[in-house]
Design a binder for these strands. Sequence first.
DNA 1: ACATGCAATCCCACATCATGGGAAGCAAGT
DNA 2: ACTTGCTTCCCATGATGTGGGATTGCATGT
Lengths: 260, 260
Amino acid sequence: MTEAVTARAPGGAQAVRRALDVLHCFHDNGPDLSASDLARRLELSVSTAHRLARTLLGAGFLEQDPRTARYRLGPAVTELGRLSYHQRGLHLAAPELADLAERTGATADLALRSGPHAVIVAGGSVTPKVGLRRPLHSTALGKVLLAWARPGDGGPESLPPLPAFTDRTIVEPAALEAELVRVRAEAYALNDGESAHGVRTLAVPVLDGAGYARFALAVRATPSLITAERTEWLLTEARSCARALEVLLLSPAERRPPAR
Amino acid sequence: MTEAVTARAPGGAQAVRRALDVLHCFHDNGPDLSASDLARRLELSVSTAHRLARTLLGAGFLEQDPRTARYRLGPAVTELGRLSYHQRGLHLAAPELADLAERTGATADLALRSGPHAVIVAGGSVTPKVGLRRPLHSTALGKVLLAWARPGDGGPESLPPLPAFTDRTIVEPAALEAELVRVRAEAYALNDGESAHGVRTLAVPVLDGAGYARFALAVRATPSLITAERTEWLLTEARSCARALEVLLLSPAERRPPAR
DNA sequence: ACATGCAATCCCACATCATGGGAAGCAAGT
DNA sequence: ACTTGCTTCCCATGATGTGGGATTGCATGT
């Protein structure tokens, strides 16, 4: 389940790929994982999982609870994460998102693409949804990231399963493709209860100069807040925020020209 | 230079350790690194560096500038970093630090230990010093982390070089040991121009129930702000903040009892 | 235009290094 | 006391990562 992340790349790797898969194991849920847990999840022998964990431990990418001997993400991850967070300028996004959330009364989320997932990297609410990983096909954020995907990242054909979360989730690849055509045509994505009931989301892209989505910006609330009448206004607000984020997050060379 | 991080651990690793070293390369300086750069820094063959980079790329831990083909930290790092940041509750620390900074007029920094470095993970100022990595022996933060080091992390003997940054930097292991005795006795660390001229820093630990420092909290300013008369007051403020952080960052089971 | 240098990328034979089975040691549950 | 499940270490096997070299492409300098 956790291994579709690193599907390809047959050349010269295995230990490394497995070690990185170990790190990715720590997304899913809360508590610390034991070496045996890791072995089970990744379908490795206990020996191998244990050895990988020890190596990651020695490099600070994992740390071990002294009581339970279980592993969790270590200081090196926090360290590199903070570094890349600032390198991307994401700390500049928080005030903009907070402002958008306040004006609209909704939750504002900024996500980027990581392989087959949309990852929320900054949020306009206090709720720590940040760090959350959502599938691309069942979220407005994901649809935006797919609709304007960079060639190297792979389009919708690169994500085989398409699991259903509600009865509205798009599971047919053809239906997803059609939806993406609509998203590109209307320049926004809508998610109406496709990942969870009672949640409606609008998302717009943060585009770079080449026309690809570097980030996706979402406004999320209950359906009563995101009505047909308010949609146009919400989109205007969201697009204005996305425009601001283009300036804040992208270097001048990466940005698209001011006039469209 | 960048390799003292992963000194030991002879058993069952190499590819993995090297790959993690590649990630650690992205601390030091700003711009993206080419595969050849990595090979030079880590003293690897270009083939190997290139292969490791491609593997990390495939897993999303690196990304490649389409123009220059150089590498930088990828979305998976941002993703895992945000996750571990929130798992550690570090987003709760920012308001406390801002408050401390405002009350004292100084800069407030929170750091944790990552191998032989103190890493600033949250700051009370707008200045993005966050993510910065400082040596343990030449900073107040580092002295605190060393003085109350957890057994598994290694004491001062685990960091061989001790480079000098100013004429005041402690370079003798014996002198550092003596300084740590003083730090433990007085329950705070002082750095008076040992890492850079014209900067004075006070640091206190954020202790867990076992008496080890989980974090270090520093108040940093010009010497004119941190005078002998103000030291006691600044320490009271800092310790009060550290106490609050103990509650915010540590689970009840990890905390030490309220009364000392 | 041509030569030169540097870097990315790919290929392949070799032997080093990761692999997983096994077993010892420990803790907790039945 | 017996069982269960875990961490941890050891070790023979061969799969896997290694680095030299060849190729291509993109600059820069002449």
